[in-house]
Amino acid sequence: MSYQFDFAALLPYWPEFVRGLWLTLQLSAMATVLGFIVGTLCAIGRADGPPAVKWAVAAYVEVIRNTPLLVQIFLVYFGIATLGIRIGANTAAVAALVVNVGAYTCEIVRAGLESVHKAQLEAADCLGLSRVQTYWHVVLRPAVERVYPALTSQYVLLMLASSITSQISAEELTAVANRVQSDTFRSFETYIVVGLLYLLLSFVVRIAFWLVGLGVFVRRRKLGTAL
């Protein structure tokens, strides 16, 4: 049983691969930034909000963590359409990914928030800082620094999971692959190439997180120690 590899058949499609790669990166970047904001606000709401907010966030997190991403994507896509709002598949993909990763971010950041000692909050209070100022200057940076490795893994996972949005015909890397393999009938070669491209993307995401970490966690950069 000998399989004749023919990667040359894929060559004409390289601009499409590049376009898919680029879109995957864009979708992931947007979902990462927005998901981080949503997740962090949820974490704060759950840790420090009024009971109704705590309850709502808890429900959101549990629903998302206990249902498949694919179902969430369809629900967001068709849900938004039912509301009479017309948005493209790519926008719907980002929205669904944000809803999904926001819940996981919430849980991770919440662990970080809990690691910040009550005495730190009290010190900030005694200096006259408002609650918002305390969160911004005293709580969030150490909290996020402590869970940064977990966040990085979560967002790599998000980038990989974005392949599922090909199901609502977002034109990302996996969607391109699906089309190329049905055109060329070189399925194995196509998915080998796509697999390698995802590996490359994972690497890029990790590098990006590392660089952002260097910029944000100045103390860690200078001293090299964990908080």
């Binding site: 005495a119 730190q120 009290e122 010190a123 100045v218």
Partner: peptide
């Protein structure tokens, strides 16, 4: 009013 505690409570991520 200023207050100082036994455990200093400096913010560890700031100089």
């Amino acid at each position: 009013v200023g207050i100082v505690f036994q455990s200093y409570n400096l913010f560890p991520h700031l100089t």
